[in-house]
Simulated assay, not measured.
Amino acid sequence: MINEQNIQIQNTLSHLFIDSKKDKFNVLKGLTTSIFRPIQPSDFKEAYLSISKKQGVDLVQLIKDNNLKNIVEFGTSFGISTLFLAQGVLETNGHIITTELIESKAEKAIKNFKEAGVNNLIEVRIGDAMETLKNHNQPIDLLFLDGWKDLYLPLFQMLEPNFHSNTIIYVDNANMADSKTFLNTIRKNSNYKFQSIFDGKAVLINRKKQ
């Protein structure tokens, strides 16, 4: 059964990655707005802003190796990273909560999850993550940060009470300015250790063993 679901996920991912390769125009269109005003999430409502296939495969292995079950994702977009997360939790009998600000993106992601046959593993929350995750009070095994970068720090701080000794925080786009500011702030806390991966594009944060 798991093999059949994995095939279904892979088929959906293949279609999404084909679409994402055609999507350079929407990314560039979003970026050009910075000429006139600061970039906003809505500027990328049609753009694929996803992790790479290699990152996705590595993410699945990370979940399996550490038996991660309770996953929270910030930044669903069209659901590419979420599908890799789902592939991992198929093996661990886990569950994903993912949150997306742009409703049209969330709706497309939900459609993709249904196509992949894993919508039962994923709870999609639509809106500002600081609101949709405000009352989260369950242990978090993996926090996947891949949304608007200036929210990494307040979101981390809000969810930190739900971390435990084996929690992993995966920081995507760690080489961007706001991400670096976030990481530099967390580095001041001696309870955490950091591992850079994919040539600095991503960083894993873990609690130090006491």
Rank of each mutant, 00 (worst) to 15 (best):
K22M: 11
D23N: 15
F25H: 12
N26A: 09
G30S: 08
L31Y: 09
T32E: 06
T33L: 12
S34M: 11
I39T: 09
P41L: 06
S42R: 03
D43Y: 04
K45P: 06
K45D: 14
Y48F: 13
S50W: 11
V60F: 12
V60I: 15
Q61T: 01
Q61P: 05
I63L: 06
D65H: 12
N66G: 11
N67T: 15
K69F: 11
I71W: 00
I71M: 01
I71H: 01
V72D: 07
E73M: 03
S77W: 03
F78A: 04
L83P: 02
G88V: 14
V89G: 02
L90Q: 02
E91F: 11
T92P: 13
N93E: 13
G94P: 07
G94H: 03
I96N: 07
I96M: 09
I97G: 11
I97A: 09
I97E: 06
T99I: 04
L101C: 02
I102V: 13
E103S: 11
S104H: 05
K105H: 01
E107D: 07
E107K: 11
E107W: 01
K108T: 00
K111W: 04
N112P: 00
K114F: 07
A116F: 00
V118R: 12
N119E: 14
N119V: 10
N119K: 10
N119H: 13
N120G: 04
I126M: 05
G127T: 08
